[in-house]
Design a binder for these strands. Sequence first.
DNA 1: TTATAATATGACTATACAGTCACATGACTC
DNA 2: GAGTCATGTGACTGTATAGTCATATTATAA
Lengths: 209, 209
Amino acid sequence: MPKKTFMNLSEDKKERILNVMIDEFYEHGYENASISRIVASAGIAKGSFYQYFNDKQDMFKYMIDVMRQEKLTYLETISAEEYKNNFFTLLRKLLKGGLAFLRDHPKQAVIYDRFMASADEAVKKGVMGEDINASNVFLEKILHERKAANELSSDLDVRFMAHILTSVSLSFGEYFQNQYDDLSKLKDEEYDHIVEQTIKLFQHGIEKR
Amino acid sequence: MPKKTFMNLSEDKKERILNVMIDEFYEHGYENASISRIVASAGIAKGSFYQYFNDKQDMFKYMIDVMRQEKLTYLETISAEEYKNNFFTLLRKLLKGGLAFLRDHPKQAVIYDRFMASADEAVKKGVMGEDINASNVFLEKILHERKAANELSSDLDVRFMAHILTSVSLSFGEYFQNQYDDLSKLKDEEYDHIVEQTIKLFQHGIEKR
DNA sequence: TTATAATATGACTATACAGTCACATGACTC
DNA sequence: GAGTCATGTGACTGTATAGTCATATTATAA
């Protein structure tokens, strides 16, 4: 985690540095992000950087932590009760929240998706800590419950399906980025369309009924 | 593409070098793979490497080309006729072929999946050339045909679903690698199980019927 | 055997980077 | 203003890397 010195900085300065970090990771990915470039872009001295963070991983972890906190605000309207009865209602809310976050914070979302898809397992563990599999564990739990409640197919492989759901949601960033230039200008309907296509896939498949 | 000098090498030597490359890319990913380490591991001089390849991308492209040719042999039993009538039969064959390749060539498969999931768009274009979207284009075509033939849901977003299918198949490597230690020792039934789970998802969804 | 072409070599150059440290500047306190 | 603590600085060190090149070795052929 960042050092006290960084935490004492003005919000302005913290945010300026954070934005440079986001641009750097977005542009070059985790592995190729360069501290030298970051300090140059942010207009701070190399030495200052090391007063703020221990190293690249430390800085990345900070960025991810900020992002996760922000993302939570997109999901927190989901109450525990809602999914007790309907898996697909929950899934819809999760997907909508995820896509709203993607619309508002496309760079962070893409950075995260790429990091999860590619990075070295050890690095991932270092950055994400216990949370590497938080998404999977959560989904597995829900899938298990709803399967037991007879809402989901009785021969469903819960672990595998949790993996698929995670993969699919991690792939949205890349999909939208390849299809459209400016994600922030996309209309809600376009996001909703993708949500509904996804829900339909998981609920009924794609075969004509 | 590799230089003539490399092509003139004995099969033995070519394969030895190829295997070192595979290990290096598997271990460190595309971005962090080091030519210096490769030549050291392969027991060849730095200068020799540059008699064989132009640079890292050139070498990687060669590795991918060899892999794709090998992978084709896993898919070529799929005749054009078979999928004319049934999308899910085709999908099953594609998935089975893909997983058989994963079982026999786990490192290459994982290298490929990670590269596709993460690498810089420009690098991907350089390495894959016209084939970046070959999988997507092929799937889109089939999905479109089978939708027109009334086999698939009439409101299916063909482009999006092609993306999902690609993402899902690219995620198998990571899934098996996280679940099991030695992919080569997995039984056919375990692969078949995943294939059937996937088919069922796409055909009917996961909701209890 | 000699000449020519192909292949192999590793020391060397240039570059980018992470991380350090002695010192400078500013802020706050008495 | 003197003293103290927090913050800022950038030149410097060490290391890893890509890529080059003059030279050496080996194969081919006449």
